[in-house]
């Protein structure tokens, strides 16, 4: 297992997340896809930490912060999705286009 394996894994994960972001109709699904993108970055951090700076834990610390923030983001995100559900009676993101042009 070299650094490149990890990088390719994270790239694949990132692209899957991106794909989900662009295609999922359900807002919760979209949120989950974004979570994948965050985790792709986390894999990068941890891998770089292990291979580039093995004596310092910058990457690990960074990824812990990211996990925390992602949790906060998801909490706020779900609250907003709930709000949307109340107002629009549904969470299909392609129905929510009241404002355009």
């Amino acid at each position: 297992m070299t650094l490149y394996h990890y990088l390719i894994l994270s790239a694949i994960l990132f692209v899957i997340g991106m794909y989900g972001l662009l295609t999922r109709r359900n807002a919760v699904g979209v949120l989950m896809s974004i979570e994948l993108m965050f985790n792709a970055a986390n894999i990068n951090f941890v891998a770089f930490s292990k291979f580039i700076t093995p004596n310092e834990f910058i990457g690990q610390i960074f990824s812990i912060f990211v996990i925390t923030i992602a949790a906060a983001e998801a909490a706020v995100g779900l609250a907003i999705v709930l709000l949307i559900y109340r107002n629009y009676k549904g969470i299909e993101v392609d129905n929510i286009n009241f404002m355009k042009w």
Binding site: L21, T23, V30, V93, D94, I96, N97, F98, K100, W101
Partner: peptide, 8 residues
């Protein structure tokens, strides 16, 4: 028109 209102 680019601004479709569609999030995705």
């Amino acid at each position: 028109r680019i601004q479709t209102g569609q999030l995705q």
